[in-house]
């Protein structure tokens, strides 16, 4: 009998637990705070590179009856380079899909680490965009930001963002290599030179761009090191003194978003450049294609780079490339 009572009691308790667990909680509309509020999103993606831009959207709002926004301020831990600013407009998209800006005050002013927009209009809520141009002194360091909004009733609110690591690599976009003229590529300088410069500065030339429409084989757009077997630079006169044996590894699906600026969410980061294996890599890459690329290590082992091929043109015999480069020693 005792055992039976215990079983009944246990069953009752389980049943009660089951009922409790199934209780429906009714949704309640949250009550809005009547204080000054803010929020932030980081709009830019991918590694933060010197010379590049970090973009944020900072929003603040207050109940209209309590006051208006009077200013928005951003303080960076390292002063931004020229070109750092906060947009003095907020945007809404009209029915044709175009973003239409509404100015909240005068254009921002930047003094040292601080960028500010002072509101002159009658606004209780707005989202402003902040563009931080990454300076040279931030290379390899971390930066953080303090976003602050002030209201006319004296309320102040802040939002801490970061830290964000600034990469050690460099980036250069849209270099044009042209067969027969500007075809000598320097990774150290991240520039394309002509034969006269190459002959005068042979140590700087890591790659040569060539276009050949050969009959029996597919050569088309190719990148070769000066030391490559002459069969890989047909009908080309190599300037004397060029001797860099660059290591080249072909790539095809590395469509870095910062270099390509197309839809793929792929990013080449410091760690990729640092850890790329160049063992047994050749000194030529024949028939490279648009949206492909090559990993390159300079002959002195100082730089590892990734060259993305944005476009190739068989008629003008040229190639548009973008480069990410990391000094590895």
């Amino acid at each position: 009998m005792k055992k039976l009572s215990f079983k009944i009691l246990m069953s009752f308790m389980l049943f009660t637990l089951f009922l409790g667990a199934c209780k429906e909680e009714e949704f309640q509309i949250p009550t809005a705070s009547d204080q000054l509020q803010n929020d932030l999103i980081k709009r830019s993606l991918g590694p933060n590179i010197v010379g590049g831009t970090i973009e944020f959207a900072y929003a603040a709002g207050i109940v209209p009856e309590k006051g208006k926004l009077s200013s928005m301020t951003v303080e960076a831990s390292i002063a931004g380079a020229t070109g750092t600013y906060m947009d003095n407009k907020f945007y809404n998209t009209n029915n044709t899909g175009v973003d239409v800006g509404t100015a909240v005050g005068d254009p921002s002013t930047t003094t040292g680490k601080t960028t500010q927009v002072v509101y002159t209009g009658n606004f209780s809520a707005a989202t402003l965009r902040y563009y931080y141009k990454i300076p040279e002194e931030a290379r390899g360091k971390s930066i953080s930001f303090t976003f602050t909004a002030k209201a006319s009733n004296g309320e102040t609110i802040s939002y801490q963002a970061g830290p964000y690591e600034i990469r050690s690599m460099d980036m250069q976009l849209d270099l044009i290599a042209k067969d027969g003229t500007d075809c000598f590529i320097s990774i150290a300088d991240m520039k394309v030179y002509n034969a006269t410069f190459a002959a005068a500065n042979p140590d700087k030339i890591d790659l040569i761009y060539l276009y050949r429409a050969l009959t029996n084989v597919t050569y088309l757009h190719s990148l070769v090191a000066p030391t490559a077997d002459p069969i890989y630079w047909p009908t080309f006169t190599m300037p004397t003194g060029l001797k860099n044996k660059s290591k080249i590894v072909k790539a095809f699906t590395v469509r870095d978003q910062q270099l390509a600026r197309i839809q793929y969410g792929v990013f080449v980061d410091d760690v990729d450049l640092r850890s790329k294996d160049f063992a047994d890599a050749p000194d030529f890459a024949i028939n490279v294609k648009a949206e492909g690329g090559v990993w390159v290590q300079t002959a002195d082992g100082k730089y590892n780079a990734y060259i993305y091929i944005n476009t190739v043109n068989n008629t003008t015999k040229e190639m548009r490339i973008s480069v990410k480069r990391l000094a590895i020693r």
Partner: peptide
């Protein structure tokens, strides 16, 4: 294989 193939890799 194609002309210019890196035979080591």
């Amino acid at each position: 294989v194609l002309y210019g193939t890196d035979l080591k890799n």
